Structures are given as structure tokens and as C-alpha cells.
Amino acid sequence: MKAMTKTEEKHKSFLNLNLRTKTILIIAVAFVILFSVFISNYLIDHSAVLTSNFYNINQPPSFDHWFGTDWMGRDMFMRTLLGLGISIGVGAFASVISTIIAILLGVFSSVNTVVDEAVTAVIDLFGSIPHILLIILVSLAFGGGYYGVIMAVGLTHWTPLARILRAEIKKINTSEYIKLSNEFGKSKMWIARRHIFPLIISQIIVGVILMFPHAIMHEASISFLGFGLPAHAPAIGIILSESMKYLSMGYWWLA
């Protein structure tokens, strides 16, 4: 009864927190989980996980193999863990590349009208091409594999954030303190560093948070279609692609 009371008190104390504190706690927990999965990629012995064991093929879930084994006797739990780590790494690197491109284009658009029109045309051009098709073409152009997937996802996911930053920077440039800075002879780099960047940090953070799962989804999509990571890699898209043939065979832990 006493333990139950303590549990209820902890539950009530969490509910009494304000929305900002709850959000920070949830983000912190999610970050710890994602970071742990990513770090586990470097702690697990890849050769042991990916080695075939034909004595244990298609085994159902058990205490020895939590997610069962696949058609080559490989532990599906460890393969899934490695796949999540790969997807998180690809999503993180691709998000950084896309964010850098979006920031550069957003800042360049404020130079003058000609540059702004050129940036708008580039954004519209990339936005008009079917997303998956563009990712596949860029991935093939970079030779596929890990490098090709990271570059393909990173070079194609910057358009929404670039639009937001361009609009926000144009709004900031109409402010009185920007006009005063120009009249005092301050350089555009000084204005960008002191007045623009501090005001667009929140948009950048939100953009990266929204871009990260989107990048992971597209990495898994092109790997599922066979244009992404190599077939021997324990990627989520490849595991899903392999599972298609087990849907009608009764191996529910693989499907």
C-alpha cells in the first residue's frame, strides 16, 4: 500500500509539471533512447550477429532469440537493433547536411532581389520533382551504399526548411533594428550574426526535429526498393523487404 502511494505521488507530481517541463523531459528520454540505440551499433560485434547459423534457421521467438531467427539463422533482435542504429546514423547525418543547405540558401536569399529569385527557383525546382525518384537518382549518382544514401537523403530534404527560413529572414529584414544597422554601416555578415541567426534558431531546431524521422523513413524506403544500402546490411528497409516473402508462410516473427 505504501509503495502504491509513492507511485501515485510520483504520477501526480509529473502531471503537475507545466507543459514546457514535460516536453523537455519527453525529449530528453527520447534522445537517451535514440542515442543508446546508435551507440549500441559500435558496441555489438557485427561479425557475430551477421554470421549465418543454419542449425537455427526460422526459429520462433524465445529467451535465446527474442525476435526469433531468419532464414540464415541470424538473430533478428540484434539485426533489428543494428538496423535502427544505421537508420538513426543516416537520419542524423542527412539532417545535418539538409539543415546546412537550408540555412545557406535562406541567408543568401536576403542578399538582394536577384539572389532571392534564384533561391526561390532552386527551391521550386527541387520541390517539383517526385521525392522518392529524386532520392533514388541522387543515390545512384553517388554510387549507392551508405555514402550514397546519406548524400541522397541529405541533398533532397532541405526544401521545406529553406522555405521557412527564407520567409522568416525576409520578415526580420523589414524590422526597424535591421534598417538602423544598415544606416550605421554594419555589414550583412554582422547583421546576420547579431540579429538574424538568434531569431531563426527555434525554426532550425523544429525543422531538424521534423526532418530527422522523415530522413529515416526515406532511407528505409529506398533500401526496401533495392536502391539504398547493400543487401547484406541489417538495415530496416532491407529487413522489411526480406519479410515480404514470409507473409504467407506462417513465420509471423519475420513478417
Rank of each mutant, 00 (worst) to 15 (best):
V114Q: 09
G68D: 01
L133A: 14
A167M: 07
V114K: 13
K170N: 13
E183A: 14
D70P: 00
L165Y: 07
L50K: 05
M1D: 15
I178K: 07
S241D: 07
V149R: 02
G148Q: 04
G68W: 02
V153T: 11
S202K: 15
A121N: 11
L210W: 08
M76C: 13
S98M: 05
L134W: 09
S40H: 03
S87D: 04
P130S: 07
S36Q: 03
I39T: 00
G237I: 01
L240Y: 06
T120G: 13
L140I: 11
I135H: 04
L81P: 09
L17H: 10
G250E: 03
L247F: 09
S109K: 01
T7P: 12
F227T: 03
I86T: 03
T174G: 15
H218M: 13
V153R: 03
W252D: 14
I26A: 14
N112W: 14
E242N: 13
R79G: 08
P213K: 08
W158Y: 04
N53K: 15
V119H: 00
P198N: 07
G250A: 05
M151C: 12
S221A: 12
W71S: 08
N112F: 13
W190D: 13
F142M: 06
F142E: 10
G226I: 02
H131Y: 15
L155G: 09
I239A: 04
W66V: 11
L165A: 11
T113P: 01
S202W: 05
L210E: 09
I27G: 09
I33R: 04
F108G: 00
A152P: 02
S95I: 05
I24E: 09
I132K: 03
I86M: 11
L34N: 06
F35I: 11
N53H: 13
T7I: 14
L43M: 10
F67V: 04
L199E: 12
G207Q: 02
S139M: 01
L105A: 00
S13K: 08
Y147F: 11
G106P: 01
L247P: 02
I103W: 02
I204E: 05
E176T: 14
I33Q: 09
I24P: 07
V115W: 10
L165D: 07
G228K: 01
L104F: 15
A192P: 03
H46P: 08
S221F: 00
V149F: 00
F197D: 08
I103L: 02
L17S: 05
V115Y: 00
D64K: 12
E183Y: 15
V29P: 06
S202R: 15
L81N: 08
E9S: 14
I100R: 00
N16T: 10
G148T: 02
S40I: 01
P230D: 08
W71T: 00
M217G: 12
I209F: 11
V153W: 01
L17I: 09
A192D: 02
H11Y: 09
K2A: 13
I33K: 08
V29K: 06
G144K: 04
I27Q: 08
N41D: 12
L134I: 11
S110Q: 02
L165E: 05
L82F: 01
I88M: 05
R74P: 02
V149K: 00
T5D: 09
P213R: 11
K10I: 10
Q59D: 04
I97S: 02
S175D: 15
L25R: 06
L240D: 10
A121H: 12
Y147L: 12
G127R: 07
Y251M: 04
A102T: 02
P61M: 07
S139P: 02
M244Q: 14
S110I: 04
L105W: 00
K12M: 14
